[in-house]
Design a protein around this nucleic acid. Structure first.
Lengths: 344, 344
DNA sequence: GTGAAAGCGCTAACAG
DNA sequence: CTGTTAGCGCTTTCAC
């Protein structure tokens, strides 16, 4: 029941949301001029602009972006899907990505998918139905249905986290197998011969730790334990896994955990059980959580430049959106490196 | 340059997004019937429904919710604004809230505001411009401009985190002063006479710790240190604060930290410096992070039922949205309690 | 620099 | 149970 009922009071305080025509009427201009004041101010004379701005302020006008989006076919919104933002890399990516896009006038609509792939298609449907101008999505392992939906949306897509031989569109990620290899090499260089892993059950975590184990074996090492715990990683899971692995940790062992949370749990439990870290058990985590830097002893970890990844991803999206140059294939390898601290 | 170039192939693979009329034509029905199949399936005959569904699948139709929203004036979207979801209470609230609303057919659009209040009005404008059907917002301390914008949106609003004497609409929160009081009482009952606090600089954290200090003094206790660190809380800040406070910790002291992160940092630094926990320094944190339960020694903390808060908030919103009964004032005190573990 | 007309893709309201 | 008509609030396009 718009503009119904009660007579006008002395002060304008509309009950139904103010619309562009209300502002136009008050300012004595056409709706189109109001639109210009908001979207392309430089195409309006200063005098008119001031009048309109006054009307906007007086009425507290908040433009309906739904209507604008329908008309212009641009939602000025970018959808982002990540499993969690508890992980520093994702948190970093999202933060930087959001900031960069907001600066360019886009809002980021963030959805957390969790680690279960159960209703990801439903989530995607709900997201794509809102016609985002672009999509940022974590993980390259999508169902065929999901890939089809994404493809047919005809919007720029950036996949993060994984490298992939078949990116949907653009990609910002790293090779999880490279990480495993590099950590293995790190330990091998230190003369380790016995190895162990604790991994969360998600595919990328498994990739990192399995490659680590494979490399260790290939170099003549012995893998004395490979625990897998249900994703997402927790400190407690790390403690439990280490406890159950204890009988096999009879000699000096080098351990790679798929997350700093698992690593911290393993370190905590090891020290409680009297296993000296790093003398008897060397531990390297993954993710560079603040916990690893700030706990005692500070823990060695693999750091991935999430902030940089977000910046690059935003650049990719914006370049496509602002349409400078042709559709450019973007693929960016996010750098990672081992931060050696006191647990190795 | 949309719809350019390459000629049609044998298989239908539309370059522009499929719309409701495309589906209607293929199914041989009116657009309205397609709409009904999607939104009110029980009002369509099974035969028609099947035909339409087949057309939807064949074309990979994803309804444009922007258009639907404009027409129906319901976006089926709820905006949520929290400073961070690194805090278990917020994470819990958002998770439960999202799940409950998704079940009812609403998507949650999550925005992280951070702890700076700088551009909150701009954020709100961008959010409200998308015409969410309801708003969940953390913190009761809003600027007048923000309050006016929210009010004039004429949508259900739930504030979380804080109790307030002047809620905008509905409220799910707790009294931070109550927390301070209760923790003080907890320590007093154990016979403590010397107290200290480490707090993040955000208003609610300060409220908790200051009330703690006040209560301790009123009971005849002595407050030997009150550190304030810049929000958001970090482990390292807790370590640094404790280190600087060390000279004043000459006797058995009870410490309340505004976050488990600060508490963990304080405990870590204390033990490193040879201050026995809990014998010389008793520490209670806030938030019930996993870290507190899983670290060694397990840390005493204040647990707030975030998941329950999210459930209640979702209930408030849905009741208003599905419109059973009159506009009901909702105010809910989220329960909290002290989890005593090994650091006190 | 400003305005008028048309329409974005969908659904409310009302027929049949 | 299904179809028709009108219009959501804005921006595109074209005119002046």
């Amino acid at each position: 029941m718009p503009s119904g009922g009660s007579g006008p009071t002395s002060i304008e305080r509309p009950r139904a949301p103010v619309k562009i025509t209300d502002v136009a009427t008050l300012a004595g201009v056409a709706p189109m001029t109001v639109s210009r004041v908001i979207n392309t101010p430089d195409r309006v004379s200063p005098a008119t602009s001031a009048k309109v701005q006054a009307a906007i302020d007086a009425l507290g006008y908040v433009p309906n972006l739904i209507a604008g989006g329908l008309s212009s076919r641009r939602s000025r919104m970018v959808a982002a899907v990540v499993p969690t933002i508890a992980h520093p890399m994702f948190a970093g990516v999202i933060q930087t990505f959001s900031d960069a896009l907001r600066l360019a006038g886009y809002e980021v609509m963030l959805s957390l998918s969790g680690y279960g792939e159960n209703d990801k298609e439903a989530l995607l449907r709900a997201l794509l139905g809102r016609r985002p101008d672009a999509l940022l999505i974590a993980g390259a392992a999508h169902t065929p249905g999901a890939i089809q939906m994404i493809t047919e949306a005809h919007i720029p897509v950036v996949e993060i986290w994984d490298v992939s031989s078949h990116p949907i569109d653009m990609l910002v990620g790293f090779d999880h197998e490279d990480v495993g290899r590099e950590v293995a090499q790190f330990f091998l260089n230190k003369g380790h011969t016995r190895f162990a892993t604790i991994s969360a059950s998600d595919p990328r975590a498994v990739q990192r730790t399995q490659t680590f184990a494979t490399c260790a074996r290939q170099a003549g090492g012995m893998v004395v334990g490979e625990a897998i715990v249900k994703a997402p990683s927790t400190i407690m899971a790390g403690r439990t896994a280490l406890a159950s692995m204890l009988p096999d940790l009879t000699e000096r062992t080098a351990m790679f955990c798929s997350s700093d949370l698992l690593a911290f749990g393993a370190i905590t439990e090891a020290r409680k059980r009297g296993l000296a870290v790093p003398e008897r058990l060397s531990v390297c985590g993954f993710g560079n959580f603040e916990l690893s830097a700030a706990s005692e002893p500070p823990a060695t970890t693999v750091s991935v430049e999430g902030a940089e990844a977000g910046q690059i991803a935003a650049g990719f999206v914006l370049q496509r959106l602002t349409g400078n140059g042709p559709r450019q294939e973007g693929q960016w390898h996010v750098p990672f490196h081992i931060l050696e601290r006191a647990t190795t």
